[in-house]
Design a protein around this nucleic acid. Structure first.
Lengths: 248, 248
DNA sequence: GTTCGGCATTGATATGGGTCAAAGCGTCCA
DNA sequence: TGGACGCTTTGACCCATATCAATGCCGAAC
């Protein structure tokens, strides 16, 4: 079983973005589809695109560190980025994975609140924060949209708090798989084949578990024919069962 | 030992807000000091104040339910509000406590992402979402400020994710007490006497623990002379020790 | 003042998930 | 082609926290 590169077949023009061209790294159009672009006119999108600069990071490269001065805003074009906070003794909590189309640093604060590290090789397009700010400042409609978007992010963070504080290991893993499936679905074709490019340690640090528990839970789900663990990912055999476990 | 009502001695004019009068429910000035008011001129603040409407809720009253249409924006003037998400089987995660000065519904989304319930009797000033939106829409500087504020909220949520996913019971309780102390400090005088108007169940649901564990942890901290449990609150005897436990 | 009801505390016990340790298993490179 | 390294899985055991069950405490109602 192979997984489609999630970034491979998407074009912003085919979705809710007015930018009528492929945005996946083609020469004249670097920014990828994103949730706020519906607020922009094609001309505005072109302008935004002109501000951007494509940048590549190998796996494990830091995009930025927690607490660092926030000099850039990034739009992930390809690959996966982990966002995390750490404790001095090394304990780590991954607060999210950024997939193609996601923005980093959109809070537009002085300093980054989390660290960002490439899980896979990553392509981003980068904006200088200053330029992005001045671009945004003249566009109240975009600002409104960004704010709404921030509210959505907050809501997701609160869901994750519920998951971390009140769910069992089984429920956590089930919710994670379904959530990832849904997110891949938004940037490619919805499929029962869910790539897991991140390590077990990453998954554990995202769900507040240990690698061993993640591994055991996956084999347990495999034994009950709910999922099938394959190289680099998971095939969801019974989304019903997963839904039941993850029950809202 | 008694606790000062945290709301009693604050005046926005003494802080970073340009509104040079007491904002604690006096007749001509209902809105309480809040983090975005620095972005507003006195005249704008007056206008905002004119839009508002004072409202009281008894303890345990719902201000709004999760998923309900977001008709209002609230500014808490007095009392404490718990914000939470629940699972169908009743498990609950409190995602935050709103203290005097805090806003509810500032994400300005269509629906509330969490439920809000009065812990103590609560006074708020209410804005209709529509009015608040149109008030805000003409003020890009305020919108920027609101967005920054949302970013800060997100950062707090991420801290809480780290706490829920990776900290022990002791660390959770220590961090909670220090955090609460700091927040009271912002609306009144910083004190080692930290009122705990919320129940142990609330604290447990905030920290991802059970009441018993919260209780045991507090008695453990009491035995080691780190805190002193008193009626309706806690006295912090060794913030050093608590800092050490909560170590960022 | 007494009783009642709702929380909080404490104790005894159970268990989900953590820890420690040892195999497995790919994959990359010599 | 093989060996070594890194990641994952599996197993055995343990412990932090949950669960279950009293008991204690305090404020409200009468």
């Amino acid at each position: 079983m192979t997984f489609a590169e999630p970034a491979a077949e998407t074009c912003a023009g085919e979705r809710d973005c007015k930018h009528g061209r492929s945005t996946n790294g083609c020469d004249d159009c670097k920014v990828r589809l994103f949730s706020v672009c519906g607020a922009l006119e094609p001309a505005e999108l072109d302008e935004l695109d002109r501000l951007s600069q494509v940048k590549n990071f190998p796996a494990k490269a830091m995009l930025f560190d927690q607490g660092a001065l926030a000099g850039s805003v990034f739009n992930v074009t390809e690959g996966i980025v982990r966002l995390y906070k750490s404790l001095p003794d090394g304990r780590r909590q991954i607060v999210g994975f950024a997939l193609p189309g996601d923005f980093l640093g959109l809070a537009l604060m002085d300093r980054y609140g989390v660290a960002a590290e490439a899980v896979t090789p990553v392509r981003v397009c980068r904006f200088s924060r200053a330029q992005f700010l001045s671009y945004v400042d003249g566009k109240p409609h975009l600002l409104r949209r960004l704010h709404e978007f921030a509210g959505h992010e907050l809501s997701l963070a609160q869901d994750q708090m519920l998951l971390l504080g009140r769910r069992t290991a089984d429920e956590k893993v089930a919710a994670f798989l379904l959530n990832l499936q849904a997110r891949y679905g938004r940037i490619g074709a919805m499929s029962v084949n869910v790539p897991l490019p991140m390590s077990r340690q990453d998954i554990a640090d995202y769900l507040g578990l240990t690698i061993e528990t993640v591994s055991r839970t996956l084999t347990k789900l495999t034994k009950e024919k709910t999922v099938l663990v394959v190289p680099d990912g998971v095939r969801l055999l019974s989304t019903d069962r997963l839904d039941q476990l993850a029950a809202a």
